[in-house]
Amino acid sequence: MAESRFTDRRGKDVLFALAVSSSSKQQLGRLALQKFIYLFDVLALACREVGGSKAFRPWRNGPYDFAIQNTVDALAFRGFVSISNLSFRRTKNTECNYTLTEAGKTVVAQFKKDKAFYNDFSLFEEIALEINRRGWKNIKNIVYSEPTYRFARSNFQGNELALNSQDANLSWQLLNDLRKSFEVTRDKPMSRRTLVQVFFALLDEYATTPDSKFEEQS
């Protein structure tokens, strides 16, 4: 029952991620899709006050949520997502790219009519814009620099990453500090666009530190 609920919610995330990435002329593979949605979940708490999922775990190839893979498989089975460039490395490693079919695009267009869903869609767009600036091939480095995931990795924690919690979502903590400081001398809040840009700038800054180099080597 619980898994079905997660899969249902992930349907929207998967469809939006694939729709937005295709606007950037980018086909997402299994792991890139996980990472893109992970960034959305990280920022959800800061951008819409309702946190993302807590189903991600720090896996060998980055944060991983099984519900996303189940969802994308189910959407492909139902004809909303098409699979291309399928290849197998050893017995367990499957590589492929996902794109939306025409039916999938129609569903996304329907979802976008809902205000709350449209907000989520535009957050995916903001994130994609920033990944575009840095290149989609760098999405792995971007996610590996993210404070919550980086902390879990450095502390060998395999528990779920509670991205919906203000205590555990470290990106939220840093962004909240930055936002509060930013807003002190203004009568307007920090826009979501700036917030997402600030988040990525923070990861860029972190990537220049010796700490991140050490992580890459290890």
Partner: peptide, 16 residues
């Protein structure tokens, strides 16, 4: 409650 790593805190100061 966990707190961000020092390097991330420094990165936040740099962005600020």
């Amino acid at each position: 409650k966990v707190i961000p790593l020092k390097a991330h805190q420094d990165a936040a100061v740099a962005v600020f």
